[in-house]
Design a protein around this nucleic acid. Structure first.
Lengths: 239, 239
DNA sequence: TGACGTTCGTACGCCAGCGTACAGTCCGTC
DNA sequence: GACGGACTGTACGCTGGCGTACGAACGTCA
């Protein structure tokens, strides 16, 4: 009964009723999504959409001066390329692989066709989009009101939820770019977490030891997003 | 030919082809939307959606400690209540009338029915939603990287685009709540703009005198959002 | 084993924005 | 025409985060 038992790897696809899912599978191609790869570029019409399996993709906006800020993050609970079926075909943001792995790729035309049928796929993708909207909104709130320390917690938790392990592979430099803060700020925040026994890290490898404590140090923003995902997509496992 | 010539007042509705528009009009009721009115509350299923005519509605998130931050803003170019057709029926944010006026109201069920037909209304609303997403994303970026001075400019321009005049009716206190900053910060920023001859204001009345200069003082965020609206919704006049 | 590139630790001065507080000014109302 | 409330001007010390910089630790590969 549980759709997540099907070894599809992407929980959004897995949440589809069997007939729809099998129809889609024919259009899917498994692809490598290495760290740093640009999945789509700002303003460019996307030829494919992507369903991550074990990678994480950041949606981020790059300013004229080169500074950047993460808007939202997509893992195996979602899909990269919503502007395709929303009608815009492109967005001002950029999608970059933040944690390497694999994913499924699907031709834009195929997805559009299926979406246009107004079936379960459309309902699911629209609900997913609303969850993504919540994540973006909460990012805006968090950027306004919360400290780098708290934001790092939120970011770690969001990443953790999208991977099967408690080990993250990312340098402080990378995290700083995602959060749009200085590396020194990330270093300080991470140091505090290590002192408290919440995480351990060295040279780009982060291990989360005490997740409950991490959640307690986090601002409310993470919970808001998590709950909203659970409400909107009860069938989508948050691995 | 220009749909905006029809005196409907809401440019999103006006952009619909005539038959669809006329079908919808029957479901619309004109309502007053006074300053401060809560259009919908966080987490509450909405019974109606709203199409502003000459008011502005802020989507904002209220934190546990009472602080708030604006996520996006909706005027006669859009609609309040997208989560209805996205499938969630509610959102964690709140919608508050930030500039009083009138709007059209429509029963949720009516909108859902029309949306489900997969006609021009669906296409239009999805594109509008993508534009709104861009606005939210850019709010997140702006909150991260830009000064209160610049954010005030962005905010004034967004408001200006949604009203037919160059006069805004809003106190510094209100603006501070929307931006999620101190009133003192807004006062300082507004003072600079007045010194430069960009605006004049007194006791809740702001007059924009030199819009080009206002745009030049603003960060890139405003333009990104404006261009994306124009690209996605070329038929929707930005009054 | 040594050299080099990557990653992390930390320090410095600087400033924008915070929280707060209080006084001035305008306006409507009685 | 005096009162009271709403709105604005401004000041104070404080702190988080910025920009920057440089050295230390680690790992890798010749």
């Amino acid at each position: 009964m549980s759709p997540s038992r099907i070894p599809l790897g992407n929980h959004l696809l897995a949440a589809l009723p069997k007939p729809e899912r099998e129809k889609l599978v024919a259009s899917l191609a498994r692809v490598d999504m290495p760290l740093g790869a640009v999945v789509y570029e700002s303003g460019v019409t996307m030829s494919h959409v992507y369903f991550p399996i074990d990678c994480i993709v950041s949606l981020l906006y790059v300013l004229e001066d080169g500074d950047s800020a993460e808007i939202a993050v997509v893992g195996n609970e979602g899909m990269v390329g919503i502007s395709l079926f929303m009608g815009g075909n492109s967005t001002p943001s950029r999608a970059v692989v933040q944690s390497g792995g694999e994913g499924y790729r699907m031709k834009s035309a195929d997805l559009k066709k299926e979406f246009g049928r107004s079936g379960p796929l459309q309902l699911l993708l629209l609900r997913y989009t609303q969850a993504l909207i919540t994540q973006m909104a909460q990012t805006a709130v968090c950027n306004r009101h919360h400290s780098v320390d708290q934001q790092l917690c939120r970011w770690l938790l969001l990443s953790l939820d999208r991977l099967a392990t408690n080990r993250l592979t990312m340098t402080q430099e990378l995290i700083a770019n995602m959060l749009g803060v200085r590396r020194a700020g990330v270093n300080s925040a991470a140091g505090k977490l290590q002192d408290e026994g919440v995480i351990e890290y060295s040279r780009g490898r982060i291990i989360v030891i005490n997740r409950p404590k991490l959640e307690s140090l986090c601002c409310e923003c993470y919970e808001v997003v998590r709950k909203e995902f659970a409400r909107l997509l009860p069938d989508v496992k948050t691995a």
